[in-house]
């Protein structure tokens, strides 16, 4: 067992959990707006959301690193006005993870909203229910598989994050060194056993999460049909 094993794992899980919760809160209104929008600018918004899927993580990390540093106006504003020094900190890698995992939350939710017939929300409106009540009582309960998909994929994807965290956070044990970076470090120092301890943990966690997802999706489909 590597000396920082539990500390690193705790940090990794904390990052994945915080990213998932925040992205769920941010992703729901965004996915709802994208699914219902008839704006001509929608493809542009969808492209921005999907960009992290195709960009190398180092590109995202590089620009965030610049944005957070005092060499840019935004960075100076964050540091001087808000007192937020994000590079090489946990909040910094959290912001990076939010950007990096955004499509993994928004795309399943958007598809979930789209596959619900429009008449469901319209029926709720004619019954006098507000948009909020309709979302909470009618739409979300009928897209549980999409919700679960978004949450699980975001969590699992953040667990495996490497490039963005490395660029913004470096590899500070207990602060920014997540499991995937620890694996890289241990291999660099030829500590294959210790790298394996992290690697096998990530492998097992990812597998268990996916089995859980597919098992629940199957069960939910059976329940509603």
């Amino acid at each position: 067992m590597p000396p920082d094993y539990w500390q690193t794992l705790r940090l990794t899980l904390a990052l994945a959990a915080c990213t998932t919760v925040l992205l769920l809160l941010l992703g729901l209104p965004l996915a709802y707006a994208l699914a219902r929008s008839r704006s001509r600018l929608r493809p542009l918004a969808e492209a921005v959301v999907s960009l992290p899927l195709v960009l190398p993580p180092t590109v995202i990390g590089f620009y965030l690193l610049l944005a957070f540093s005092d060499s840019t106006a935004l960075g100076r504003f964050l540091i001087n006005q808000l007192g937020l020094s994000l590079n090489f900190t946990f909040p910094g890698i959290l912001v990076g993870s939010l950007v990096y995992s955004l499509p993994f939350m928004v795309q399943p939710l958007q598809a979930g909203f789209r596959q619900l017939p429009r008449s469901l929300s319209e029926a709720a409106y004619t019954l006098g229910k507000s948009r909020g009540t309709t979302l909470w009582r009618v739409l979300l309960p009928n897209m549980k598989p999409a919700l679960l998909n978004g949450v699980v994929l975001t969590f699992a994807h953040t667990l495996g994050e490497f490039g963005v965290v490395l660029m913004i956070g470096g590899s500070l044990p207990g602060r920014t060194r997540v499991a995937s970076i620890a694996i890289y470090d241990e291999v660099q120092s030829l500590h294959y056993d210790q790298a394996n301890a992290y690697a096998i943990t990530l492998l097992v966690v990812a597998f268990v999460i996916l089995v859980g997802l597919y098992w629940f999706t199957k069960k939910d489909a059976a329940r509603l049909s």
């Binding site: 008449s119 469901l120 319209e122 004619t126 006098g128 009582r137 009618v138 509603l224």
Partner: peptide, 28 residues
Amino acid sequence: PPQQRPLGFVFQDYALFPNMTVRENLAF
């Protein structure tokens, strides 16, 4: 807005809420 019009609308596809039982659909 539709919420403030005292009317009932029956949709061609019925638009029943799949997550609710018959009684819950009515209660909603």
